[in-house]
Design a protein around this nucleic acid. Structure first.
Lengths: 107, 107
DNA sequence: TTGTATATATCGGTGAACGTAGTATCTTCG
DNA sequence: CGAAGATACTACGTTCACCGATATATACAA
């Protein structure tokens, strides 16, 4: 799983959201590091629904604009947690080799 | 940067190593999670030399087998550190959403 | 009316990763 | 002695997530 996918799943842990809102949430969660383009976003959403990590929650019409809401599944929650553990393990592997890293933003 | 690349760079922080030794070191550093195949390993090494993150340190003949040793560059060290910070930030983004995760192995 | 934000969708290209197969030598074990 | 396994690298082809570009459409502000 790559970074965009991880943050999409993470964003949906709070509540069901529609695509565009997910993109905003991902940017916030990632300290403005990850900015999803339309291709990445909707491609990933379709893929994740196919894989059973997400489900379509509902569709709405708001001011003539269609909104499709996505909900994370149990399988999706499990996958997110596994990925978070993987990230932690990868980071921690660097500690004995690189020493403590600066606390600040991700450069 | 993907996981195999990250661990290859990390492995070379101790000392210059040849391909096969790198693969062993990567497996150890990753808690046996990342196992590099020949394709990934040597492909990544060539690519990283091209990008200036690694350099060929020296070549040896050991028992008729050629050994090419790789060394990390300053640019490679900087890239590894950036990547480690990125991993930490990504993991930490999960904490308020997933809560504390089990300390054990990465499932 | 031009631009920006909202909102979704499709298409094609790129490149890292990955699998597999091949070549070759040395060591170990039955 | 022969098979197996570790060492060490090369060379293919394939897959798949990501990404930029493009398209469509509404609402609102300058």
């Amino acid at each position: 799983m790559r970074e965009p996918t991880y943050f999409i799943l993470l964003a949906l842990h709070r509540e069901p959201m529609h695509g565009y809102a997910i993109a905003s949430q991902v940017e916030e969660l990632s300290d403005h590091r990850v900015k999803l383009t339309a291709g990445t976003l909707y491609g990933a959403l379709d893929r994740l629904v196919n894989e059973g990590l997400l489900e379509v929650d509902r569709e709405e019409q708001v001011n003539g604009r269609r909104r499709r809401y996505y909900r994370i599944t149990e399988q999706g929650e499990a996958a997110t947690q596994e990925e978070a553990l993987r990230l932690r393990q990868s980071f921690e592997a660097s500690v004995p080799l690189l020493g403590p890293l600066p606390k600040g933003a991700t450069s």
